[in-house]
């Protein structure tokens, strides 16, 4: 894992590279099964529902809903001290899968379970942009 200002920066693997390439383009990519149409995230060699290897990468809408969140008051490491307090959340994508993320672009106190959010991408390095979520506009 590379580090930027001490924060962990994801190192793509062969399996996850299409996801991170998508993030660099500002697109949230997840997998869909070519047989049973099941959406999945994290990426896998085959469909976690029917085991078909015909999984394909598709662009998710970027829309999601907050399933749970916490306002972190004691940062995980010094690298996150300047961001504290920050929101760590689990969001359920419109397509179904759940992701961990940060909720940005609003006051931490305003985050609620069930809140509609949309993906934004924070550029960490030339290669890696991190998907985060902000309150859905409009």
């Amino acid at each position: 894992m590379a580090e930027t200002h001490g924060k962990p920066v994801p190192v793509p693997t062969r399996e996850t590279l299409p996801f991170w390439e998508g993030c660099r383009r500002g697109e949230l990519m997840i997998q869909r099964c070519g047989e049973c149409r099941h959406f999945q995230f994290f990426p896998r060699l085959y469909c976690s529902r029917c085991m078909s290897e015909r999984v394909e990468w598709v662009r998710a809408s970027g829309g999601a809903e907050v399933s749970s969140f916490t306002i972190v008051r004691r940062p995980v490491s010094a690298a996150f001290a300047a961001d504290t307090p920050y929101v760590v959340a689990l969001v359920r994508l419109d397509e179904g899968p759940t992701m961990m993320t940060n909720i940005v672009g609003c006051s931490p106190e305003s985050v609620r379970i069930g809140m509609a959010v949309e993906a934004v991408f924070e550029r960490l390095t030339d290669e890696i942009s991190l998907p985060q979520f902000r309150p859905r506009s409009g």
Partner: peptide
């Protein structure tokens, strides 16, 4: 390492997500 740690969750945050839900 790729899909959770970059968001800075300390261990209590994981359990806080459970508690909040």
């Amino acid at each position: 390492p790729q899909f959770e740690r970059p968001y800075g969750p300390p261990i209590p945050a994981f359990y806080a997500l459970i508690a909040q839900a």
